[in-house]
Every structure is written in structure tokens, then in C-alpha cells.
């Protein structure tokens, strides 16, 4: 269950950022989770709730944006989404394509009300 540790890192990042905006109320934090990140969005949401319930952060909304595995074809330059491990380029048929996304575990943005 490392999602709890990850939820904790998210909350720490929110606290650090909030400290830079005195008086602001943070409403939402958005996190990007790729399908290869090894993080289960549901258990991240659950962990985050467990962590914030009963604290000053309990109304903070966690938005989880999932990201698919993306590949790029070096032959024709096409960026495409990989479905069911089909790595060949759907445009030109090249079999060797490069993974360009899907392992993200990133903080995207915060929404806050400034005083």
C-alpha cells in the first residue's frame, strides 16, 4: 500500500505551496497518474481521504487524471495511444515505436481562493 505514502507526498506538496500564498484557501489539487506508474487511482483516492479526514484539509478535493500509454513512431512521427499492447504504428505499420508517456506521477495544479 504505497498509495498512502504517495497521498502523503501530495499533501506535503500542497502544504508547501499553500505556505507561499498566505491567507489563500486551497480547494483542489490535481494529480496525473499514468497507467504504467504502478499507482492505483482508487486506492490513492481512498488513502488521500483517510489522510485528510478530520484535519484542516478535509475539504480539499483530489482530482486524479489518468494517462494512457503513448508511443511515437520514429518513422512517420505519429503519436498514438497504445491499446492492448499493440505497439506497431497504426499509420505506417513500423513495428519499433518509442514509449513517450504513461508512467507519469505528477502534481498538475492547485486551485485556490486568494484573499
Amino acid at each position: 500500500m504505497h498509495e498512502l505514502g504517495i497521498a502523503n507526498s501530495v499533501l506535503e506538496a500542497v502544504q508547501t505551496e499553500a505556505a507561499r500564498h498566505p491567507g489563500a484557501v486551497v480547494r483542489k489539487v490535481a494529480v496525473t497518474v499514468g497507467e504504467l506508474a504502478g499507482v492505483d487511482p482508487e486506492s490513492l483516492a481512498f488513502s488521500f481521504e483517510a489522510l485528510t479526514t478530520g484535519t484542516e484539509w478535509q475539504h480539499l478535493i483530489l482530482e486524479i487524471q489518468t494517462r494512457p500509454r503513448m508511443h511515437r513512431c520514429p518513422a512517420c512521427g505519429l503519436d498514438f495511444r497504445v491499446v492492448d499492447y499493440q505497439f506497431a504504428c497504426p499509420e505506417c505499420g513500423a513495428s519499433k515505436t518509442e514509449c513517450t508517456g504513461g508512467d507519469e506521477l505528477e502534481l498538475a495544479y492547485l486551485e485556490m481562493e486568494e484573499p
Partner: peptide, 14 residues
């Protein structure tokens, strides 16, 4: 509502 982009890794300290 003010949107502040963070664009950094969750485990940036690690």
C-alpha cells in the same frame, strides 16, 4: 478561483 500550475513529480524529493 485561481489555478496554480505545479507540474512537478509527486515523489520529487525521493
Amino acid at each position: 478561483m485561481n489555478r496554480v500550475p505545479l507540474e512537478k513529480k509527486v515523489l520529487s524529493e525521493n
